[in-house]
Amino acid sequence: MKLNKLSAKGIAYVIERNWMSFRKLFKISIFPNLFDSILYLAAMGFGIGHFVGQVSGMPYLTFISLGLVAATGMNAANAESTTNAYIQMRLDKTYYEINTSPINLEEIIVGQALWAGVRATIFGSLFLLVTFAMGILQSWAALFIPIILFLTGTLFGFLGLTFTLIAPTRDYLNYYSMLVIQPMYMFSNTFFPLSSVAPWLKNLGWFSPLTHAVSLIRQMARGTLRSTSTYDFIWLLIVIIVISFIPQCIVRKKLNY
């Protein structure tokens, strides 16, 4: 299958166009994007955390708060690349409208995934500020956490767009959220260390992109980055590159306006 050539300008225009819509709706979108994480922080971090001692060499509140920074980014990117993208693809047909301009469908997909990365950075960073206010951040390396949030969001952007493209109806997106996103949310070192679960589950958790994002964010926040952290970073990059081709390959077949 031959893909259309990508233009950096074209991709940038798609992001800019999304930004135009987003800045109008930013204030009302803060609450829904952060509510889930704050609820978990309150219930598990402050609630259960009261009964739990040290986890992986840190207080449980610190452990879960930093895990939730990555999870907030993932959820923001997921919402953008599933529900929002579905509306733009199938209901409002914004992609079709954009495609009548010189921007091709592949550029729309890449721009949309990168935009999911931007949203992950924005909302993940807002939650990062909450952890800063709680005195959890211990290293200047935490300033680079938004980069990890961007990569995580872009990865989940491509993944979400792939499922959104193949979903016959909007209801099918629930299956993706239930069967893919929710298990990753739970079993990616977010709420408890994977070292405490059965080996098969631990191995499965290694394949979750969120596991690697959580690991990097915890190390950056606490200033414990080590040479093996590079593997997590490279893992994220490789997965982004590989899965970015899937929605680009299927978009012209699936979006036959």
Binding site: K9, M20, S21, K93, T94, Y96, E97, S101, P102, I103
Partner: peptide, 27 residues
């Protein structure tokens, strides 16, 4: 320039923003 059968206007943007959002796609 294309006028499609459906309006396909972005309801999250106002009138002039819809114009600008389309214009930037043309550099």
């Amino acid at each position: 320039g294309v006028v499609m059968q459906d309006d396909l206007l972005d309801t999250s943007l106002n009138v002039i923003e819809n114009m600008i959002a389309h214009a930037i796609l043309f550099d």
